[in-house]
Nucleic acid binder design. Structure first.
Lengths: 190, 190
DNA sequence: CTCTCATTCAAGGACTCTTTTGAATACTCG
DNA sequence: CGAGTATTCAAAAGAGTCCTTGAATGAGAG
């Protein structure tokens, strides 16, 4: 008890979990899976990688215990192992945003100029939903809407938005939302 | 805005932070630094590595923004960049403990049989400190005691314990504590 | 200024990770 | 059972990581 080899092995175990997140493509997978379960081909499409490579990354995540699978017909669905994984992902993003020197520039390059958008706080949004003077649009993929969404929101995935824009009412304000601070669907939608 | 290369770069940025934690020795460094700042040679000693290799790992952590340095005379002290890093480390440990299949075995191998020890809850401990019927001993290294400790605790680093054991009073109970659930100083002390 | 010491750098060899390609599994449905 | 499809495996090239050794840096003290 308490010997060096055992301590190394234990902390290597902690490091294994970090190693699973230590790849940009796997980080994207976690970010997508935080919205709900998806199958391999969808995930490959989300991260723009081959199905084989995506499957490999998912296996890496699975063997670190971050994701689990479920079979339905002949599709295999992956989902996060628990909400704790979301907490870990959030903590990682927070630390990166706070301390990683280049992250501001990277985020700006991907997200564009956010200051040209109008933001709506959570409290304000729920007040206005209750008052009925706003239409909320969920611009995430249909699978993520199906896995859970803001009550009363309408699903219009980003790629269908141009076609369905005319169906939205003219006389009330429209609010678009997506996955979180590092998701551009809503920005594009506006 | 929103193009694939920029998204890859952004998530590679998140992965950089995970990569910094993706090594057992660096994980040990974070765990030690969570107790307070230390200089390179002390840290090398804690993780049983050469000073050069420890310095290399610390640089890796520093360039991911997880630790920062401070010079005092001709010593360089490292400390965590902020409490957010502690949150990240805690979240990582939690996920590992909950989902990593082999971690139970590794922890048992390092920690030994914890069930032979008497545990004292936080509430109970503070009540008994107030009542004065307990002596609390901090068995961490002196530097960590200096960086912060339970009010009223007495510092007896593990390596001095055998010598100073006779000085402890016979008539009240003694409670030992150290860094947290993955630290064996207190177990050894008992 | 020079000496000293803590820390960092550089080069190397062994090892691991990422991605692609093409083939192999494993399951469902007819 | 057999066809069809989603997923995983295997091999290989190229890149990156870890740790050791020995030398270099740079701040403080004399």
């Amino acid at each position: 008890m308490g010997d060096r080899a055992a301590k190394d092995a234990l902390f290597d175990g902690f490091a294994d979990v970090a190693k699973a997140l230590a790849n940009g493509r796997r980080a994207e997978l976690i970010d997508v899976l935080a919205q709900g379960e998806r199958h391999v081909e969808e995930l490959a499409d989300e991260i723009d990688q081959s199905v084989a490579n995506t499957s490999f990354h998912l296996r890496t995540l699975a063997s670190a215990g971050l994701v689990v699978t479920r079979r339905d017909k002949n599709r295999i669905y992956y989902r996060l192992a628990s909400d704790r994984v979301i907490d870990l992902w959030t903590a990682l993003r927070d630390v990166a945003a706070a301390h990683h020197a280049e992250l501001d520039a990277l985020a700006a390059a991907y997200l564009g100029r956010r200051d040209e958008l109008d933001e709506v706080s959570r409290a304000e949004l729920s007040a206005r939903i209750a008052a009925g003077d706003v239409v909320v649009v969920d611009v995430r993929p249909a699978a993520e809407y199906a896995a859970g969404h803001i009550a009363g929101a309408r699903s219009i995935p980003a790629e269908r938005l141009a076609r369905e824009l005319r169906d939205l009412p003219d006389d009330v304000e429209v609010v678009a939302y997506c996955r979180g601070p590092y998701c551009v669907f809503a920005d594009d939608a506006v």
